[in-house]
Simulated scan of single mutants.
Amino acid sequence: MELRIFTEPQQGASYDDLLAVARTAEAAGYGAFFRSDHYLAMSGDGLPGPTDAWITLAGLARDTERIRLGTLMTAATFRHPGPLAISVAQVDAMSGGRVEFGLGAGWFEAEHTAYGLPFPSTKERFERYAEQLEVVTGLWGTPDGGTFSFEGAHYRLVDSPALPKPAQAKIPVLVGGLGPKRTPALAAKYADEFNLPFAGVDAAVEQFARVDAACEAAGRDPGEITRSVALVVCVGRDGAEVARRAGRIGREEAELRENGLTGTPAEVVDKLGTWRERTGISRVYLQVLDLADLDHVELVAAEVAPQL
């Protein structure tokens, strides 16, 4: 099972804060450093303010060497698909082919109104999301020398040169969420990885089964899609350290134990074993909420990862 680091910079982080976590994660042997794509804190003051996801990843592409980089999830409401495909391909080239691309429909209305971004209905957001997946992957997949055209309800491209191309032959695409119908169908069509954020084991079992069924209906082998989850992490060498870390992020320890990966390294390894046995996941994104606590990142790498 691969462990990855997942951060929420909108809650309060500078680029230097994120770089410190990414470099620590790289040195500790994590598989990837991911970040959210939000412009507004969900709680607290969010100081010093938000950082843009793809500008951050462009910087990390040059300031790290080996760790993979990506988003959970880029919001389709923030960007047009043509320029987005250019940005992600450029960051992939800047990183030497280490980018992974998570795309979602967008959901947080307050950040849209705070920064002057349209926030369509749920129906329209999913329509735009589906079209963006088709456009972005279509641009990247167009053969050299060819052109790409698209006529949708929300986006229209005519004879695009479909440049630049990513450094990788194929940038991995992540789709995720608990939607019962459209989400599994989009995953079956586009996803290299399906991610469930902050779900319980039972809900995950049901959703992964829906994705498998959608793959089979589309004539695709479900085994081609990596299964992953994102869970908040709060690990301590003993109970006192667990309690201290829970307090630092403003969460109740009992709630974290129920909904996240919380406890001593041995307790967290046992919980990950249950996840693996019941859901078949092979990748976990550890939501790290105290970005100043680099010892936490190193502890999990040293005492949890080797047991997986």
Rank of each mutant, 00 (worst) to 15 (best):
G263M: 06
G59T: 09
L69H: 08
G44N: 05
D192H: 06
A85P: 07
N195L: 15
I5F: 00
A305W: 11
G223M: 12
P265F: 09
P180D: 13
F148A: 12
Y115Q: 02
K181Q: 14
L69F: 06
E127G: 13
E134F: 01
A230R: 14
M42L: 15
R23K: 14
L231K: 15
P184G: 00
T51P: 00
S95Q: 04
A22N: 03
L231P: 06
E134L: 04
V211C: 05
G250L: 06
E65D: 13
L19K: 14
D293I: 07
K271W: 04
C215I: 05
E111C: 02
A76C: 11
V269L: 11
R79M: 09
V232M: 12
W54M: 12
F101K: 03
A191W: 04
P50M: 01
I55N: 08
D92P: 10
L231G: 09
G273R: 08
S43M: 13
D37W: 01
T183V: 15
L117R: 13
P118V: 08
L47E: 15
G152H: 01
R35P: 05
G236M: 01
L286W: 01
M94K: 00
L157K: 05
E241Y: 00
V136Y: 03
Q11M: 14
E253S: 05
L291H: 13
V235L: 02
A27G: 14
G31N: 13
D293T: 04
A305Y: 06
M42K: 09
T226I: 12
A204R: 01
R244W: 05
V175G: 00
K181R: 15
W107D: 03
D238E: 13
R278W: 07
S228Y: 06
A75P: 04
A162N: 00
V205S: 01
A75S: 15
G29F: 11
L299P: 01
T64Q: 05
G116L: 07
E100Q: 14
S228M: 08
G97P: 10
D192S: 07
F208E: 12
Y155L: 09
V233H: 01
E252F: 11
D52S: 13
P306E: 07
V88L: 02
A130W: 04
R244L: 12
E216R: 15
L19I: 02
E253T: 14
F78G: 07
V158N: 05
T7H: 04
G250R: 08
A25T: 07
E2W: 11
L157E: 04
Q287K: 14
C234H: 03
V88Y: 02
A153F: 09
L286M: 11
P83H: 12
A213T: 11
E100R: 12
A266P: 06
A191V: 09
S228E: 08
M73Q: 02
P172L: 10
F119L: 10
F78N: 10
D92C: 04
E267D: 11
V233R: 01
D202F: 03
A13P: 08
A41C: 12
W107R: 06
L84K: 04
A213L: 10
D293E: 09
A58M: 04
S149M: 02
Q11W: 12
R98G: 00
S149T: 14
L18E: 04
Q11I: 09
R79I: 08
